[in-house]
Design a protein around this nucleic acid. Structure first.
Lengths: 343, 343
DNA sequence: CGTCGCGCTGGAAACGTTTCCGGTCTCGGC
DNA sequence: GCCGAGACCGGAAACGTTTCCAGCGCGACG
């Protein structure tokens, strides 16, 4: 009788037999149903223990219609996606709130767009967090029509709750800071100009300058390619095109800024004395660069966390805002000096 | 007749009815069964399209006994785990091979150890990758007795296939390099001395020195705490204890090394002229530090990738080696100079 | 012309749960 | 002593697949 614990995984029936009760009763014991006598529950639990029984989450999910896991999909041409420190932070935020809610997180870095739709409709997850601005409208339309709760992160689309960063605001903060610092000749460098976030930053930058009566000419805008030294190439191009050289440079992100700094140095221009430089992202390296990089920071973990919270709210049937914006904040460091105005 | 596509999610029965076939036939069409006429298959597929049918992976998994997703569990006291760049790299490697194999990856950063056992026996995953050296033997024993295929990464345990880094080798490589550079007074700094990996590095370091007839005294070994400046504190302690100060320092990892460099600077000791310094990990910052940090590198992504590959092999019923070791490699940069021997 | 084999198909039984619905038992009130 | 009401429990029907097994039609072979 005590050697019942055989090889094959115990099922709820085995437990029922062992405890001398019906399977419904076992289920009740497992689910903290109030309609069960304390003694019976104890006996059942004991039987579970004795048989090393673990209920199949598969069968349960099938019956109950929910899996308790949510998908986190990141669409990216560049695999693997976790290595992108930006996404890593976002996922970190997501992970935190999901873990606390007892949800499991199914991570998927989609290469093909069909994978995303598959994930959405296979029933593997209860909800979906779609991260990144590379997801095209066509996919989003299909996503909207699927019954699965979806929340977009760092991307916005009509009809799907979205959490975005105020990239435009980041651009204008940078512009204002550079203006305050006494900049007069402005430039914008980036790895590429296709990324919607970069475009938004540029747009904010341009608009704020326009507000001060300054126009950003096409030669003052350059993209240098998605490699590690894209910012270098972009900066070099600007330096070749404009004379005298700019004294206020805004880079679409920190890597571009750091790499642009190198180009400036090699060109004999000293940062921040002759050129002020500001980036976006506040990556770890930024603070440890020499000189430390002035940058526009935003709460990446908060971005992921609020997205996750909104999804949980939707799963619970609560309403969530259609669009949430994460604020940005300029952190002044060594590559710009606001007291430079009087020279 | 064409307005069949109603709200409720279509099931395989609906498709069968729509296509005028039996449900078994639909299943066959979906699973590329050879025993089905081409015309029938086409009709079924068309019906699927028309009804926007997507089969439930839940039901399928339940019947078939496999879910096509594997768990990646990282046990860590410090949440969230993806933010640790080391783990991020490892996960990146895992992600790559899993994605290629068509598996989904269920990410779990366990706080409680029971969560790990739950994950292992709930049937949610087909296999488990357990990452990190913080998992205690007691849990591993239980894990071994579970029917689920498990592979350990950066950790080893009798009876579970494991993939580890040759931390001992890393320590001795560092020692040899420092000896070659002419070091005579050695020290070891770390954030803590509990981490098994750090201990292994120290052990390798100590052994290689012993091989050269040099003994590492207790005062030359210090841990400064797990904070950002643990290395700083450790280094300061050593400097206070030893006179004349060491001329060759090995840090258990790069953050500690960087932070130790700061302590050395503040103490008026110039790196590498007066003290040679080497770390482990080759984090991104290392190469961009001034001066660039000499460090011991190993293939973190490969670590994850081989672990994942071994798990896939196990899932396919193939045998895998009980223990695989990832080699390390010293990369010489600015904080050490091998030509320093003659001074 | 009967029968065999073969290509294709459909029905029904699983897989391991939850949950509805009804049943038994006990107990207090009359 | 009977009755109704709870409290507790068990059987069985789902959930949406896969797969076994039997059946059908039909050409070929004897």
């Amino acid at each position: 009788m005590s050697l019942r614990a055989r090889r094959a995984k115990a099922t709820i029936r085995d437990v029922a037999a062992y405890a001398g009760v019906g399977i419904a009763t076992v289920s009740r014991a497992l689910n903290d149903d109030p309609d069960i006598a304390a003694a019976t529950r104890a006996r059942v639990l004991e039987a579970c223990e004795a048989l090393a029984f673990r209920r199949s989450s598969l069968a349960r999910s099938l019956k109950v219609g929910a899996t308790d896991n949510v998908g986190v999909a990141i669409m990216s041409r560049h695999a693997p996606v976790i290595l992108n420190p930006f996404y890593a932070e976002v996922i970190g935020g997501i992970e935190g709130v999901l873990e606390d809610a007892g949800k499991h997180l199914l991570l998927s870095s989609l290469k093909r767009r069909d994978d995303l739709l598959d994930l959405a409709s296979e029933g593997r997850v209860d909800g979906l967090l779609v991260v990144g601005c590379d997801v095209v409208p066509e996919v989003l339309t299909r996503l909207r029509d699927v019954e699965l709760p979806v929340v977009l992160i760092d991307n916005a689309f009509e009809g799907i709750p979205s959490v975005v960063v105020d990239h435009v605001g980041a651009g204008s903060q940078a512009a204002r800071h550079l203006l305050d610092g006494g900049g007069t000749r402005f430039a914008f460098v980036a790895e590429n100009l296709e990324n919607p976030n970069f475009r938004a930053r540029l747009e904010g930058f341009r608009r704020a300058l326009a507000g001060a009566g300054i126009e950003l000419t096409p030669e003052a805008i350059a993209a240098g390619g998605d490699s590690w030294d894209g910012g270098y190439a972009a900066m070099s191009r600007v330096l070749a095109a404009i004379h005298p050289p700019p004294d206020a440079v805004f880079a679409a992100n920190d890597p571009a800024a750091l790499s642009a700094a190198k180009a400036l140095n090699e060109h004999g221009l000293r940062v921040p004395d002759q050129v002020a430089l500001v980036g976006v992202d506040d990556i770890h390296l930024a603070a440890h660069h020499a000189p430390p990089l002035t940058t526009v920071r935003f709460d990446k973990r908060g971005l992921g966390a609020t997205g996750a919270r909104h999804l949980l709210d939707r799963l619970a049937g609560r309403q969530v805002p259609a669009l949430t914006t994460i604020a940005t904040e300029l952190v002044e460091r060594g590559t710009s000096r606001s007291d430079r105005g009087t020279r």
